[in-house]
């Protein structure tokens, strides 16, 4: 069996589908389906695309109820669990803080602006009845960006698996879901980059199944007066978190690995306890450069 790699751009980053197949054409057909599935999720759950379910809900904020399909409802169900298990820190209505934070220039938004936006955050205030949803206030926004990429990796991997691909993985900008080991049964070895030196790996992790996802302060950030301001924002303070440089989690599903690493970032000092309690293997580097891990 040959191993084929298909690269593509999606979800604001680089994606790859790596699969083992006896024939290239079959691999290509399967990979095309997987890449299309990633595209479908990006289109459905992007805030920016008019007509997507998310933009329709956001446009109707403060107004009409919007009926949702089953997939969206199940994502809401998952959002409920994220909100609960993070004590409200993982909130899919907190994306509006980005209206104040523009990482293209080093400037900290003023307090009044942040407080105004914080007033429009609150997943617990979002109306739900049957299959319908309603944002209670004009200006409120839903944003699935916190787990859509990982969800897409899981869905693409499940689709490949359903098309009889037993060996390979889906990688969306470092969030990886493994379908099965290399054809010889050995694991895929996945390197975790050093957040301060992107050419260096701080660990290499062998995976035969399951998923690995990483959150970090290196994706979008600026530095001002010796402090790093990253894109992971606390919905209560409106300010970037700064306890961890990076958190990687291994779990059976990419969506779960991604959520746990993001929650740990958001919990800052309490994140280590959260990771230990989750029971999942992790590797984390705090702001002093100290490594914490559980295998």
């Amino acid at each position: 069996m040959e191993v084929y790699r298909f690269g593509f751009r999606a979800m604001g980053g680089i994606g790859e589908v790596v699969i083992a197949c006896p024939v290239r054409t079959k691999a290509k057909d399967a990979a095309t389906l997987a890449i299309e599935e990633v595209g479908r999720i990006e289109r459905s759950y992007s805030r920016y695309r008019s007509g997507s379910i998310v933009s329709r809900i956001n446009l109707a904020a403060g107004g009409e109820w919007v009926e949702c399909d089953d997939e969206t409802l199940s994502l809401f169900g998952y959002a409920d669990s994220l909100y609960e298990s993070s004590g409200g820190l993982f909130d899919i209505t907190s994306g509006i803080l980005r209206q104040a934070w523009d990482f293209s220039e080093p400037a900290v938004p003023d307090r009044a602006r942040l407080d105004e936006l914080i007033g429009k955050i609150g997943w617990d205030r979002v109306g739900r009845r049957g299959k319908e949803v309603r944002l209670p206030e004009i200006g409120m926004e839903l944003d699935f960006g916190g787990f859509a990429k990982e969800y897409a990796a899981d869905r693409a991997a499940a689709l490949l698996h359903a098309h009889e691909v037993g060996n390979g993985y889906v990688n969306l900008s470092g969030d990886i879901r493994v379908i099965g080991p290399k054809p010889d049964g050995s694991p895929w070895v996945i390197g975790i980059r050093d957040p301060r030196d992107r050419d260096k790996a701080i660990a290499s992790i062998p995976l035969t199944s399951g998923a690995l996802a990483t959150s970090g302060d290196y994706e979008r950030f600026f530095e001002l007066d010796g402090r790093r301001y990253c894109h992971i924002l606390n919905p209560r303070t409106g300010m970037p978190v700064d306890y961890w440089q990076t958190v990687s989690v291994i779990s059976p599903l990419a969506v779960l690995a991604g959520s746990c690493s993001t929650i740990a970032m958001l919990m800052e000092g309490d994140g280590l306890q959260y990771l230990n309690d989750s029971g999942m293997p992790f590797l984390a580097k705090d702001s002093t450069g100290h490594l914490h891990r559980k295998d």
Binding site: D70, E71, S74, L75, G77, Y78, D80, S81, L82, E84, S85, Y151, D154, R155, A157, A158, L159, H161, A162, S209, G210, S251, P252, L253, V255, L256, S259, C260, Y274, D277, S278, G279, M280
Partner: peptide, 20 residues
């Protein structure tokens, strides 16, 4: 355990849990 509650919730997502 928080991880377990999240896992159960994640597995309720449509067709992501083939390996399990």
């Amino acid at each position: 355990m928080m991880g377990t509650a999240l896992l159960t919730a994640a597995m309720a997502l449509p067709a992501v849990d083939f390996a399990l």
